[in-house]
Every structure is written in C-alpha cells, then in structure tokens.
Design a protein around this nucleic acid. Sequence first.
RNA 1: GGAGAGGUGGCCGAGCGGUUGAAGGCGCUCCCCUGCUAAGGGAGUAUGGGCAGAAACCCAUCGAGGGUUCGAAUCCCUCCCUCUCCGCCA
Length: 423
Amino acid sequence: MLDPRRFRQDPEAIAEALKIRGFELDLATYHDLEDARHTLQTELETLQHERNVKSKHIGVAKQQGEDITPLVAEVGDLGSRLDALRDKFQQIQESLHDFLLHVPNLPDASVPPGDSEEENVELRVWGKRPEFDFEPKDHVELAGTSLDFEASVRISGSRFSVLKGNLAKLHRCLIQFMLDVHIEEHGYEELYVPFIVNRETMTATGQLPKFEDDVFFVRGEIDRFLIPTAEVPITNMVRDQILDFSELPLLYVSHTPCFRRESGSHGKDTRGLIRVHQFEKVELVHITHPDASWEALETLTRHAETILQRLGLPYRAVVLCGGDLGFAAAKTIDLEVWLPGFDRYREVSSCSNFVDFQARRAQARFRPDPTARTELVHTLNGSGLAIGRTLLAILENYQRADGTVQLPEVLIPYMGGVEVLQF
RNA sequence: GGAGAGGUGGCCGAGCGGUUGAAGGCGCUCCCCUGCUAAGGGAGUAUGGGCAGAAACCCAUCGAGGGUUCGAAUCCCUCCCUCUCCGCCA
C-alpha cells in the first residue's frame, strides 16, 4: 500500500507515476472517498467528544450523589446519532482502504518504460550457450518415462507433474544444493514455514485482495489459501512486529512448494514443467533498513545468480519495464536461463524490491534508535531458484547426442556419485 | 474430540461499569548524585488518525467483531488464538 498521507498530498503526482506501469488511477473516485472521509471524520469526532464530556459529567455528578436524570436526558439521542454517523464513516473508511489496497506500488525512477515483456532491458548476459551437433531435444522428450504426465493427470489433472527415479532425486538434490549455498556461503537463516496461510498474510504481501483468482482457496472454518510463493509466509514473519535496529537486515531462505491457479494462462506453456500448478522454489527474503534496500536488491540478485553460475547454466539478467512489473514491486530484476529445447531464455528467478509497500500492509516496523518513532522496514525477495525450471534447464543444456544428460560438477556429490542421467 | 484457565503497552502484570490510555515492576532515554564498581534520586517512555510538520487540543485502540449502557479494559453474544489435563495421532 502507498502512504495514505502522500496520497492525500498529491494524488495527481501518484496517478502520473503509476502510468509508467500502465495503471490508470481513478482520481474522481479517490477524491469523492477522501472528501467524504474528511467531512464524516470531523463530524464524528466532534460528536464523540461531546458525548465523552457529557458522560464524564454524569459520572462526577453521580459520585457526588446528585440527581443525574436531567443530565442523562440532555445526552438524548446522541447515541443513536453517533451510531448512524459511525456506520457511515466506517463504510467510507472501508471503501477508501479497499481502494488503496488495489493501487499498485510506484515504480522506481530507474524502471524503464514499456508495456510488455518485450520492452524489458537486458542488464547482463552470462555463460556460453551450448552448441550441439545434433538437434537438441526439450526436457519432455529427454526425460521420457521419468516424467510421468499420464500419472499426474490421473492423480490431479493437467498442469501437475510426477517425477521418477533419478529425475526425482536430482530435483531433491537441487533444493539441497541451493539451500547449502545460501546458508553456508551467503549467510541466510533457513526457515520452515506453513504452506497454508490466512487472509491477513496474503493481504500483507499483496496477493489479496486483487488477485484472489490466481491462488488456491482452502475450504474451512476460516479462509485460508495455499501459498503461491514462499515470499508470503516468510515476509509475514515480521508482520505486526517492531524490530530492533540491530536486527536488520534479516536474511531468510526457505524451500517450499508453490501453488498457482494459472487462471489467466489457458493454452499457454502447456508442455512439460514450464508452467504447473505446483512447483518447488528456494526463496530468498531480505528485511532491511530503508536506506539499504537498493543495495540489498543487488546482493540478493547476485546470490541467485551464483546458483546459475555454479550449475554452469547460461542466463541473462533483465530489468522489468513498467508494464511487466508485479503489483507490489518497485523494481524487479528477472534472471532468465537459456533453454535449448525452447530456443529462448525463460525466467528462473524474479528479484524485487518492494520498498515499504508490503511493510505498510504488514505493519512491519523497526525502531531506528531507542527514543525514535517506529519506521517501516523495506522488504525484498527473489527465487534462488525455481527448482522445476532449473531442473529442465539442466536437462536441456547438458544433453548429449545419445539422449543422456551429463550432470553439473557441483551436483555429483549430492547425487551420490552419479555423473550421467539415463532415461 | 472432551473438561478447564486465559489473551491488557517493548516485556511482566494490576484493574472487572465512571475523571483509567490504563496502577506497579522490568527494560529503555535524558538529567542529578556518588571519585571506580555496586547502588540511589528525578523526569520521560504505546500505536494510528483529525493535520505536511512542530506544539497544543481532540478522536480511536486493552485478541477480533457485534450487543447492552448516558458511559465498557470491565457486563452479554459470536469468532480467533494460547495454556493445562484427558483422548487420539505422524
């Protein structure tokens, strides 16, 4: 959520800044709500004050043994007038809050203009794309029966996967490898977190209220949702917390499954592991001092890149243009791995700085020094990396003419000495 | 699943219908005193909002939401959560 004060001060400037991401701010509605809020609030508070004063008088009079009936009469219908006014005020407050919850974050000044993916700007390219003296296969062809979509369709439906044998093991080892690097070399603290979360948690990170159609809902006594990314539970570690200055930055890493409805992507990426309802990720989250978040975005992105480099996978880093930017992000750098089977780069990590946007929704604060007022922290996250897509990138980049796959050096110890995958 | 006890500030904890945003303690900040140390004295110390900011003033907030009342931390209802005992269970 954007700062309501800043909003009040200059909504036109905010509307202008949001145009970069192609968001049309409904200024008329905003002004209507804000004006109504202001009028009602003043009116309500005056009336409340009146009631408080009179009630206090009654208390004093009663204690002194005076007759309070005339005083009670004087309060008259104040109560019912207050009730009516409070209802109206709360309704407006709710509408205004809801309005603000639907407004995306302001893009950082460095975010390039553009409407779609095509206008993202390449920052750097790493690694040499493999050259094959044969026609490279995609991961579905390569994995053969180790990737059992017939089973996953029977078990759950389309867009799920069943991995078998060494392919399933490689999938598990990738998780282990990534966690080890981030914990032992990059200094992250590992977390194990819930995969089913409540509405408040989903609202804090920005998935709700706007994107309820994109996530899986769990039926029950209270509303709960399957996490679409580990960012949700991890960032909510600091929801409603007041951290000490000395605790920052917090660096968390966690491996979780991610569940997505993919409701807007019918017919898109239907082949293989590229776009599924359930996949695994190792996620990096930074909770930082507001002055440190831009540097942290660099650090976090480099940490994710380290994984690709260790695995010897060619990739490029792109900065997302305004039109491709996610709802809560101020700036995002995507890491895209080269996929020979698709003859293109595909996203394996998305590293974002949310500045205070999520922190405000989450009321995640810190105290700069013992006497100071609390301030909002900044939050960042990025995949380090998406497991399924990394797995298929390994298959496609390391494939050989005979259909076997040579494993990257760093994974061999994890695989118990297995150097080549045969399917 | 059954029975019971609870949820109050950064933390502990009192209050159970009126001037209580909340005693007391711990912690923290500033000042004073004490030649170190230990200890002592004083003042201050929630969040959000009315309001860009400061002061003053005002409003709201005692797990959440409703209700009763002139007035609710306090009484009633619903929900959420925590703890203890029993049962069940990876």
